[in-house]
Design a protein around this nucleic acid. Structure first.
Lengths: 195, 195
DNA sequence: AATATAATTGACTATTGGTCAATATTGTGT
DNA sequence: ACACAATATTGACCAATAGTCAATTATATT
């Protein structure tokens, strides 16, 4: 194999190894030696591709979130979903469904991305919104036997993801009829969470 | 001094020391010994108050973001701001102003909280929204001689913060007239960023 | 096939994390 | 005020991990 392909292959195998270990044991409990061993390369090689563990972590998260958004937007375009409210519903559907299908990604997020922005006050709003969002989410997690430690924070993060997308669309200056959009949003979230 | 007060004082001084060092050198380049030294306590003491550096980091960020939200909501109530669009504008104003006043907090966020969710596609939306949001932000940072390394990511994060608050309000089921709200929002952001 | 260039390695050192027996401080009963 | 118990604090110590680099191996070039 030529050098260029080999480089790409090594980088990919390091990223994959890290993702596997981060998901299983958490970033904190994974050493660079662990990652190198899992990827089947020497430790020194790690430092040829990444500055340190944090650098790899950032690249990994950026890749995953970029893929999520890019795939969502691509799919949205191909399905010619144009109205703003439909777009938002689609993106939220997409994120939740993607995470439900991709349990390792959900676990990775749940285990490693607490963000620290988790806010009790905001969490309480989610609690008391009368939609039973949290209950549905936890019910679904139990039903599908998904073993994550902190479903509340995970739900919070899914909402963060969705909300940043919402806001981006506002920034994009597209027409937004929120009154029309809200019942669809609620319905979509409920449907998704209650299977 | 009695034990209870001493405990609170030690914990506070550890948090303050950590915040100072995290802001100056970044979390990565700050050791637990550094934090203990800065706080004027032995290293062992650190472990009486926090499980590890990540635990302290989480508490620190939770405190800061809770304070930001709590203060914003308190102020909003005391000023009897009730309409949804006015509430959103107020909260965004509050976050940006608070960070402009509290440069160390802005630096701390800028230096340490990249989130990894920074997304080129979404960033491009912010770039191309015709409001000159990014240019204004960078202009303001330069004008006030604020020395942060990655203003783009920082702006992105401010928008994340604001958007999660927006979304929480949607969850709270309050009336939202987005068409009425949008020009106010844009105007408010512009005004704030252009001084 | 010989040589140059680039990639890889893991033994090595330096740094940091985390523990714990010894010490100091504060609280309590007489 | 004193003795004693309970609690908090410490930093020397050991273990784990990060990060380096001279030696080695693989690939490219002529």
């Amino acid at each position: 194999m030529n050098m260029k392909n080999k480089k790409v292959e090594k980088e990919t195998s390091l990223l994959n190894a890290a993702f596997k270990l981060f998901t299983e044991k958490g970033i904190k409990n994974t050493s660079i030696q662990d990652i190198a061993d899992e990827a089947g390369v020497g430790k020194g090689t790690f430092y040829l591709y990444f500055k340190d563990k944090f650098d790899l972590q950032e690249q990994l998260i950026t890749n995953k979130s970029n893929k999520l958004f890019t795939d969502a937007l691509k799919e949205m375009e191909s399905k010619k979903i144009v109205g703003f409210s439909d777009q938002i519903i689609f993106i939220i559907n997409y994120i939740i469904d993607e995470l439900a299908k991709n349990i390792s990604l959900l676990k990775f997020i749940s285990k490693n991305l607490s963000f620290g922005l988790y806010n009790e006050k905001i969490n309480k709003l989610i609690d008391n919104n009368g939609l039973g969002l949290k209950e549905s989410f936890i019910k679904r997690i139990k039903a599908e036997k998904i073993d994550i430690e902190n479903p509340e924070v995970t739900l919070f993060m899914i909402i963060e993801l969705a909300s940043s997308t919402c806001f981006s669309c506002i920034m994009k200056n597209e027409p937004l009829a929120i009154e029309e959009f809200k019942p669809h949003l609620y319905k979509a979230i409920r449907k998704l969470l209650e299977k």
